[in-house]
Design a protein around this nucleic acid. Structure first.
Lengths: 216, 216
DNA sequence: CATGGCTCTTTGTGATCACGAAACGACGCG
DNA sequence: CGCGTCGTTTCGTGATCACAAAGAGCCATG
């Protein structure tokens, strides 16, 4: 089997393609906590052999997005209460800092883009699309934090999101009521006003509020 | 080649053994920034094939300890000024929080152990052992932070150390003067006094002071 | 009906190989 | 003497295979 391989994807190595696809599925909460994955199954899904699948999985394990049992079986971790609180504390520590660094660089075009994303967040809430809600909520935050010009800090923050991914889907899947993104409005207001303490507070609240409901 | 394999190491998979060994070498600054590594070379060093070497390298790349060029060549990254400042800011953000969480649990036996480690840090400074200094300095911090019962936060902090590893070795290799660990004494004093703001300040200073000298 | 052992299947691990691309070196031309 | 060009070597990538261990299912026995 030496032919085929890409066929549709002109860029990037196979293991990287598998990694990115799996990462998005985990980040968007499309894989349930405790669900098992097999290297041969992943390889078959993406039309590659075990080798690239193994590398992608290893990378995700290193980032905390996946766990492996003593025998090497791979699965999405089920987070304990302490772990959830700790990851929420990390978000509360990192994200206000990122937002604060983005504030002096947040011009009107950025704010308008954030408002547009926020509108789509509202749509997802209205149609009870949990996965779409998570995806657009993260896009809202990432769009803001990208302005902070702190790639290492943003990368670490994203690994925290990644670890929370499967658990968050459980939360928003259970979430029945259509709660409007109040904290997002506060974030936008603080951005417009150049209110740094208010921005930090709003971001911190937004990062921690939802996770409080996750406690078993 | 189906025989041999372990022979000396009864526990753990081969890729994990390679990963841990490489990780320590990077963390202790025994690999210079910009130095190239080859999978076949790593495999030969550890008596394994390319497969476990590749997995170990991939994992370290995921943690930011190694970089790979567009063609897949692996090397320790040379950090830019902005990157160093950002990683220092991350240390300044994370480590005071870890120390603060450890404070209520820091009993006398822990403080005595920290003082013993600190004494060995002084020895390393006296004998101009850069690698040993880095190793014991990290052990000082990790011993304290382990008490905070925040494994995810500690793990992220260690990846920050890992990214700084090769660059730190350059710093301490150039460091001629025998500077005593003043901040470590401040940390120990604050721990004994139960002085939480003082502890945060001392830890923050210790995390950022050395890195200021690294700016090119 | 529960439980223990047995076999067959599934799965991860590591070694090896073919392939293409990048790096390296030397030679020759200007 | 400098520089480009071509052949050689080195390297990463992905596929495939043998192997061991863990799982799952099943039957027999208490």
């Amino acid at each position: 089997m030496l032919i085929h391989s890409k066929a549709t994807e002109p860029t990037g190595a196979a293991h990287d393609r598998v990694y990115r696809a799996l990462r998005l599925r985990i980040l968007h909460g499309e894989i349930h906590p405790g669900q098992h994955l097999t290297l041969r199954g992943i390889g078959k899904d993406f039309g590659v052999s075990m080798t690239p699948a193994r590398e992608a999985v290893r990378r995700l394990v290193a980032e905390g997005a996946l766990s492996l049992s003593s025998s090497g079986r791979v699965f999405t971790p089920e987070l304990s209460n302490e772990r959830i609180e700790e990851l929420a504390a990390l978000r509360a520590l990192l994200e206000p800092e990122l937002a604060s660094r983005a504030l002096p660089r947040a011009h009107l075009t950025l704010i308008e883009r954030l408002e547009e994303i926020n509108g789509r967040v509202r749509q997802m809430i209205a149609r009870h699309d949990a996965s779409g809600y998570i995806r657009l909520n993260l896009e809202f935050h990432r769009t803001l934090y990208l302005r902070s010009q702190a790639p290492a800090m943003l990368a670490i923050t994203e690994t925290v999101w990644l670890q929370l991914g499967p658990t968050m889907s459980k939360l928003y899947g259970q979430l029945r009521r259509t709660e409007p993104p109040r904290n997002h409005k506060l974030i936008l207001a603080a951005l417009k006003a150049g209110d740094e303490p208010g921005l930090r507070l709003a971001v911190r609240s937004d990062a921690t509020q939802g996770l409080r409901m996750l406690k078993v």
